[in-house]
Design a binder for these strands. Structure first.
Length: 427
RNA sequence: GGAGAGGUGGCCGAGUGGUCUAAGGCGCAGCACUGGAAAUGCUGUGUGCUCCUAAAGGGCACCGUGGGUUCAAAUCCCACCCUCUCCGCCA
């Protein structure tokens, strides 16, 4: 959520930011008009309340002296009716104002490449090189099916398409990767591990920016609970409506499954586990002092990259352009893994600085050295998303005989297993 | 799921319709005292909105949340949420 004061005082800057994103300005137009009207109305109703408060006190004093106050009370009843009427108007206006404000995206940071779609994204750096194959590399579905580590058909029967099921060494690989990533972030990158609820309430979904705009992409359960699309939601909302009682920065990491309806992307990448309704992810979240958030974004990105470096996977880092960053982000880097079987780059991490956008929505504050409270800056990054990481491991590690050689870093977490083979393993 | 108790400022805690402008304590900050400290004393100490060119200063709202009654609500009424205790069910 943008600061209404910024909108009021620097409307042109806000308009330029939205234009750079290619975002519509109708919500902004409505907010500007409603804000002006609201302030006029508030002034009016507060004058009336002041009058009522003053006179009510006088009535109390007069009554204690035994005087009759019938006439005054009658007059105040009329003032009260007027107040109720105007208060209702203010409430309606504020509800509409808030709803529109919640639909305005964050403003892009000045360092972003300018452009309206992914073609304007800039490659910041590349790690490693694509492996050369002496044979035609297969896609992860073929590799995995031969190894017997997936069973998508039965998963579709029990649930529906897009819900992956891992079996045997496939399940173990998922578990090993989760453990490997959590250990790395906790032991070497200074994060505190959290295991949060996997469903959250509506207020939390508004806090991180999924609602109200992206309701269609979310799974909505009974009791008005939502399945989380990312651990970002519960972890960031850990401090919703709080003044953080620990010294900043605060680093948190969490493994959770993630649930996404992927509404509107039917037909895209339906085969395998590249685009699914449920996947596992280790997420990193930071709560930081505003002046440090861009430096913190760089280290957050480095923490995510470290996962891939240790797995010795070929990847590249993109700085997303003004038109391609997500709703709540001011700046965002994507990390993409090379998948030879797809002959394509796969996004496995998105590292974003939200500045005070989420903190303002979720009311997350800290105490400054001067004693004043202020909104923190929040950041998060995938560290990293699992289904696609598995795709890259399978496709990059595949051998001509159909077996898959695992990255060295994961071997201890696999109980010493170095290679996945159909019908067995080689230690 | 059932019964009961409770939710008040950074924290503890008083307050059952009218100077509540929320007592008192703790904590915190400043000052005084001191060679320095402790102890003690004094003073101050919330958030949001709004008016004002700004500052200074006014005003409004906030006692779990949302409604209602009343000239007037922390206080009365209704609904909901959460916490605790006991019972039931349960991995």
């Amino acid at each position: 959520m943008l600061d209404i004061k910024i909108i009021r005082e620097h409307e042109e800057v806000v308009r330029q930011g939205l234009a750079a994103r290619g975002a519509p300005t109708d919500f902004l137009d409505a907010v500007v008009a409603d804000d002006r009207q609201r302030r006029a109305l508030v002034t009016e109703v507060e004058t009336l309340k002041n009058q009522r408060n003053t006179v009510s006190k006088q009535i109390g004093v007069l009554k204690s002296k035994g005087q009759d106050t019938t006439e005054t009370q009658k007059a105040m009843r009329e003032v009260g009716d007027l107040i109720n009427q105007k208060d209702a108007e203010v409430r309606d206006l504020e509800a509409r104002l808030k709803d529109n404000l919640l639909r305005i995206p964050n403003l892009p940071h000045s360092s972003l490449p300018v452009g309206l779609d992914a073609s304007a994204n800039v490659v910041v750096r590349t790690f490693g090189a694509p492996r050369t194959f002496a044979f035609q590399p297969k896609g992860h579905v073929d590799v995995g099916e031969r190894l017997g580590i997936f069973d998508f058909a039965r998963a579709a029967r029990m649930t529906g398409s897009g819900f992956p099921l891992f079996l045997g060494m496939g399940a173990k690989l998922q578990r090993a990767l989760i453990q490997f990533m959590l250990d790395l972030h906790v032991s070497e990158h200074g994060y505190t591990e959290m295991l949060p609820p996997f469903v959250v309430n509506t207020a939390s979904m508004i806090g991180t920016g999924q609602l109200p705009k992206m309701a269609e992409d979310m799974y909505h359960a009974t009791d008005d609970l939502w399945l989380i699309p990312t651990a970002e939601v519960p972890v960031t909302n850990y401090y919703r409506d709080d003044i953080i009682d620990r010294p900043l920065p605060v680093y948190m990491t969490a493994y959770t499954p993630c649930f996404r309806r992927e509404a509107g992307s039917a037909g895209k990448e339906t085969r395998g586990i590249i685009r699914v309704h449920q996947f596992d992810k280790v997420e990193m979240v930071k709560f930081v002092e505003p002046s440090t958030s861009y430096a913190e974004l760089e280290t957050l990105l480095a923490n995510a990259e470290d996962v891939l470096k240790r797995l010795n996977l070929h990847y590249r880092v993109l700085s997303l352009c003004t038109g391609d960053i997500s709703f709540a982000a001011a700046k965002c880097y994507d990390i993409e893994l090379w998948a030879p079987g797809q002959n394509a780059w796969l996004e496995v991490s998105s590292c974003s600085n939200f500045e005070s956008f989420q903190a303002r929505r979720a009311n997350i504050r800290y105490r400054r050295p001067d004693g004043k409270v202020d909104f923190v800056h929040t950041l998060n990054g995938s560290g990293v998303a699992l289904a696609r990481l598995v795709v890259a491991i399978l496709e990059n590690g595949q051998e001509a005989d159909g077996s898959v050689t695992l990255p060295d870093a994961i071997v201890p977490y696999m109980g010493g297993v170095r290679r996945l083979e159909a019908g067995g393993v080689i230690g």
